[in-house]
Computed example of a mutant assay.
Amino acid sequence: MKRFFSLPNEIFSLGLSPGALALYSYLLYCEDRKTYQCYPSYASIGKSVCMSVNTVRKYVAELEGRGLIITEPTSVITRDGRKHNGTLRYTILPIRNAVDRYNQRRLRQLEETVERMRIRKKLEGNEEHPA
Rank of each mutant, 00 (worst) to 15 (best):
residue 98 A to T: 06
residue 20 A to G: 15
residue 28 L to H: 02
residue 109 Q to R: 10
residue 38 C to F: 08
residue 77 I to K: 11
residue 48 S to D: 05
residue 95 I to Y: 03
residue 110 L to D: 10
residue 94 P to V: 00
residue 67 G to S: 03
residue 65 G to Y: 12
residue 19 G to C: 15
residue 110 L to W: 04
residue 18 P to G: 11
residue 117 M to H: 03
residue 99 V to W: 06
residue 57 R to N: 13
residue 73 P to C: 07
residue 111 E to A: 10
residue 11 I to M: 07
residue 24 Y to V: 05
residue 50 C to L: 08
residue 107 L to T: 10
residue 21 L to K: 04
residue 117 M to L: 05
residue 114 V to N: 02
residue 14 L to S: 00
residue 21 L to H: 04
residue 56 V to T: 15
residue 113 T to W: 09
residue 92 I to F: 01
residue 96 R to V: 15
residue 60 V to H: 03
residue 112 E to F: 02
residue 82 R to S: 07
residue 40 P to L: 11
residue 90 Y to S: 09
residue 104 Q to I: 05
residue 68 L to E: 03
residue 60 V to N: 06
residue 27 L to N: 02
residue 104 Q to F: 09
residue 117 M to D: 03
residue 43 A to P: 01
residue 14 L to G: 01
residue 9 N to V: 00
residue 87 T to R: 09
residue 49 V to W: 10
residue 62 E to L: 12
residue 97 N to P: 04
residue 55 T to D: 15
residue 33 R to L: 02
residue 85 N to S: 11
residue 72 E to I: 08
residue 53 V to N: 08
residue 71 T to A: 08
residue 78 T to W: 14
residue 114 V to W: 01
residue 35 T to S: 13
residue 8 P to H: 09
residue 119 I to K: 00
residue 119 I to W: 00
residue 96 R to H: 11
residue 86 G to D: 14
residue 117 M to E: 02
residue 98 A to N: 07
residue 19 G to I: 08
residue 7 L to V: 09
residue 7 L to F: 10
residue 12 F to H: 14
residue 37 Q to M: 11
residue 73 P to L: 08
residue 50 C to F: 11
residue 51 M to Y: 06
residue 9 N to W: 02
residue 118 R to V: 03
residue 21 L to Q: 04
residue 18 P to Q: 10
residue 117 M to A: 08
residue 98 A to Y: 07
residue 55 T to F: 12
residue 68 L to A: 09
residue 78 T to M: 13
residue 115 E to N: 03
residue 21 L to F: 13
residue 111 E to I: 05
residue 105 R to Y: 12
residue 39 Y to G: 05
residue 55 T to L: 14
residue 31 E to A: 06
residue 118 R to E: 02
residue 97 N to T: 11
residue 58 K to E: 09
residue 78 T to E: 14
residue 49 V to P: 03
residue 63 L to E: 05
residue 116 R to I: 08
residue 88 L to E: 07
residue 106 R to G: 09
residue 55 T to C: 13
residue 65 G to D: 13
residue 117 M to V: 05
residue 114 V to P: 00
residue 101 R to K: 13
residue 34 K to T: 06
residue 106 R to E: 12
residue 54 N to M: 12
residue 68 L to I: 10
residue 100 D to L: 02
residue 95 I to G: 01
residue 33 R to C: 02
residue 122 K to L: 14
residue 57 R to Q: 15
residue 77 I to Y: 05
